[in-house]
Write a protein that binds this DNA or RNA. Structure first.
Lengths: 337, 337
DNA sequence: CTGAAAGCGCTTACAG
DNA sequence: CTGAAAGCGCTTACAG
């Protein structure tokens, strides 16, 4: 009647209004066969009129079951790459009956730590980190090892080897290294443009250095960091050219930066790929949005997410899985090389 | 010792190992001042060595507090637009101490319904829908009204008027209508390309029809649906031209489609904007990735998310807010018009 | 300063 | 078929 305050209903309210015990209400909630059709209908009707929904929180506590919650910690959802990863993980996990608690942390180490602690506290069954492996000021990752004492930690695009931590990553080092070697056939003035110090970011950078050295090229000043937008990549590129540098081959740590370079080059009247080759990274939707279409390194994000979710299912069933899984990258040659 | 099975620790384990009652353990967990320094240290030490973390689920149940969970139901995270929305909501909500349960539903009505029910069950404090307003086969949205009986429903990019439902949207109808009027000054052969039947998708479409009619143009066959990728938009565009249609002005329901049209046009040797004007939608990062840069309609997503989170805070504090909030769109003219 | 007890919203053996 | 009671992992008045 007087639901002024519209308190949340509980099983006691329903029971008393239906004139039965809470045990009986619980039974109809759980479809127990041992309830007479008559009282079942009565209970169902008061549940219906009040729109009562039992608290799964309390149910889990009572049943000693988990909430089927999986924590996802991601670096930055505004980045198409991470958004795709979260999207794929979410649907694969949902299909298996899991629910997602999401936290995005950016580069803030403390936030990362807080997010993971929060997830543990929420009793998640596992946490999946996407490109979120950062080290504290002393260069260690104790927070990860600690978290892994509570539940499995799955890392996508990172590699930490420890008990109950499982890494899924692409060989980004070789990807860039090999890309340099391939482009070396036609080019000699390289530029590597990157924007983040993530685990895979560093792999790419080191791959670039290694590739340059292997080709007998001096990498000094040839790897430049810019901001995470196309305009910044473009102006970096312009600045170098205006400063007298020669550049005929650019590799970038993601496709947006590649698009920025492409735009800048076209505006300078450079012909792509005749005067300049460009290879982006992630093989994202951006590659479809430019003319000429961007070549890009595909690091198999979809595959990584699939492997991670499959692995997680096994872990949750009590099976063992490998501590680390690496997949090979693929260079997708389109029109900019 | 024998933590073979590594059962989750609870407050009883800690209490018995520390030789105190669970009440005392709880007190040190909650920083109660009334604990002697000595026993406090003892308890803290066993908590530390075992890496014990209390269950916030149980704490909330006991404290009669909520888990500060907000449900986000989004249409499709692979779409940059939605990813941005989730990103902004997540950080705004996290700053205010909320946590996010995320569910992506696509166009599947049943999934949408299931997701919302799951969130209610998880005792969320509110649910935010982003572009997720779909109707069932009979054209009604009873599932939303029902959900709103349990907690506030905030809708971004949709408009449902009912008790405890709050809508935040952009005037997409006028946006497209006005865009047609503006482009009409130089153009007469319009094409509107869209890919989804969402609430705002329909507003845009109707805005196009209204704009055409107001300009005395026949919209028949001038609004075409394609798939959600650039290639599909491009081939739609090509097919029409190859079929003999004249087109000199294109408006699309998002920027990816606009990029697809731009690519196709450039490949046909059309000059943009001399021969063809193109206006995308969402003013996303894609607009920065093409040459020439895409003009686009900005529907103020960031503002909508801000307003929604502000509104939510008020609701949670018991204040009242408007049932619906509309913001005006802005046409961002760049190089394709 | 500390513990026994009741309670949060549920479930389920155990009796009847 | 149904209810009283114990229990899930916590917290907090109430006694001492």
């Amino acid at each position: 009647m007087a639901d002024e305050k519209k308190e949340k209903l509980n099983i006691y309210n329903i029971a008393s209004e239906a004139g039965v015990s809470i045990a009986t209400v619980s039974r109809v909630l759980n479809n127990s066969p041992s309830v007479s059709e008559k009282t079942k209908q009565k209970v169902l009707s008061v549940i219906g009129t009040h729109n009562y929904v039992p608290s799964s929180i309390a149910q889990n506590l009572s049943n000693r079951t988990t909430g089927n919650l999986i924590g996802i910690v991601c670096y930055n959802l505004k980045d198409i790459y991470y958004a795709n990863a979260v999207s794929m993980l979410e649907s694969a996990l949902r299909r298996r009956g899991h629910h997602i608690i999401l936290s995005c942390t950016g580069e803030d180490f403390l936030q990362k730590q807080k997010s993971i602690e929060m997830l543990i506290t929420k009793q998640v069954d596992a946490v999946i980190l996407i490109g979120s492996v950062f080290l504290d000021e002393y260069g260690n990752n104790a927070y990860l090892l600690n978290a892994a004492k509570h539940c499995p930690l799955l890392i996508i695009n990172g590699n930490v080897r420890s008990d109950n931590i499982y890494s899924f990553y692409c060989d980004d080092f070789s990807a860039v290294k090999n890309c340099v070697a391939i482009m070396r056939e036609k080019h000699e003035n390289f530029l590597f443009l990157y924007d983040a110090d993530t685990y895979s970011g560093n792999l790419k950078l080191n791959g670039f250095y290694a590739g340059m050295q292997e080709c007998g090229l001096d990498p000094a000043g040839r790897a430049v960091r810019c901001d995470s937008d196309a305009a910044s990549a473009g102006s970096c590129f312009n600045k170098l050219l205006d400063g007298g540098e020669k550049i005929d081959a650019v590799i970038t740590a993601n496709d947006v930066l590649a698009a920025g370079v492409l735009n800048a080059a076209l505006r300078r009247g450079m012909r792509v790929p005749e005067d300049l080759s460009i290879v982006g990274y992630n093989n994202s939707i951006i590659t479809q949005c430019t003319t000429p279409q961007l070549s890009s390194i595909d690091n198999g994000l979809e595959k990584l997410c699939e492997l991670a979710v499959d692995g997680l299912s096994k872990l949750l069933r009590g099976e063992k899985i490998e501590g680390s899984t690496m997949i090979p990258p693929r260079l997708i040659a389109r029109e900019t090389m």
